[in-house]
Computed example of a mutant assay.
Amino acid sequence: MGPDGKPCYLSTDDQGGCVSRLADHIEAFQLGTASRLLEHARRILDNNTKDLKGLHLLAAQLTSALRDVLRAAKSRGGRPAAPGHP
């Protein structure tokens, strides 16, 4: 999001450009974070934890990761997936 709260989109025909590569790296990092959080959530839920503070923190982190992944998916539109991610 930009400073005014509106979405920011990368518009370029140069797939190998510096800004495109940076955007792809950030997106790959966000997807990796979401994947690790999902695995962490599976472990916590499989253990039937009673730690409400831990569950609240996990829910906040998962919400943030989901927001990032959805923002990337929406902004990607018709662009091909980031290298290494289908």
Rank of each mutant, 00 (worst) to 15 (best):
A73I: 07
T12E: 00
P7R: 02
M1Q: 11
V69H: 05
G84M: 01
N48G: 13
A28L: 08
A65C: 00
P80Q: 09
L31N: 02
A82G: 04
I26S: 10
H56G: 07
A82F: 00
R79V: 07
A23G: 03
G77M: 02
H25E: 12
A81W: 06
T12F: 00
G17V: 01
R79A: 12
L45N: 04
G77S: 05
L62G: 00
K74G: 06
H25D: 09
M1S: 08
A59D: 05
M1F: 11
I26L: 15
P3S: 11
L58R: 02
G54S: 00
L38S: 14
I26K: 11
T49D: 03
K74N: 07
I26N: 10
L38V: 14
Q30E: 08
D46R: 12
V69Q: 01
G77V: 07
S64I: 10
A72C: 05
P80V: 08
D68K: 01
G78E: 12
Y9E: 06
D4H: 09
P3H: 10
Q15D: 11
L10H: 01
L31C: 04
G77K: 06
V69T: 06
A41L: 04
P80D: 07
Q61E: 12
A72D: 03
H25M: 13
I44Q: 14
E39K: 11
A59Y: 07
P3Y: 15
R79I: 08
A60Y: 11
I44N: 07
F29W: 14
H25L: 13
G17A: 02
R71Q: 13
G78Y: 08
A28G: 03
L55P: 01
S11A: 13
R36T: 15
T33S: 08
G54R: 02
P3D: 11
L62R: 00
K53R: 14
T33V: 15
P86G: 12
L58E: 05
Y9K: 09
L10P: 01
G5H: 11
Q61L: 09
E27P: 02
L37P: 04
R43Y: 05
H56S: 12
A34G: 05
S11E: 12
R67K: 11
F29M: 10
A82C: 02
A60M: 12
V69N: 01
G84Q: 05
P7K: 01
G32P: 08
N47G: 15
K74S: 11
R76C: 00
V69E: 05
G84L: 01
L55M: 10
P80I: 06
L57N: 12
L52Y: 10
F29I: 11
A65K: 00
Q30Y: 05
H85M: 06
S75I: 03
G54N: 05
T12P: 04
L57Y: 10
D4Q: 08
P86H: 13
T33D: 14
P83C: 03
H40N: 09
K74I: 14
P7Y: 05
L52S: 14
A72P: 04
E39Q: 13
C8D: 10
D46M: 13
K50F: 12
A34R: 04
R79Y: 07
D24R: 04
A41Q: 04
H40I: 07
K50P: 00
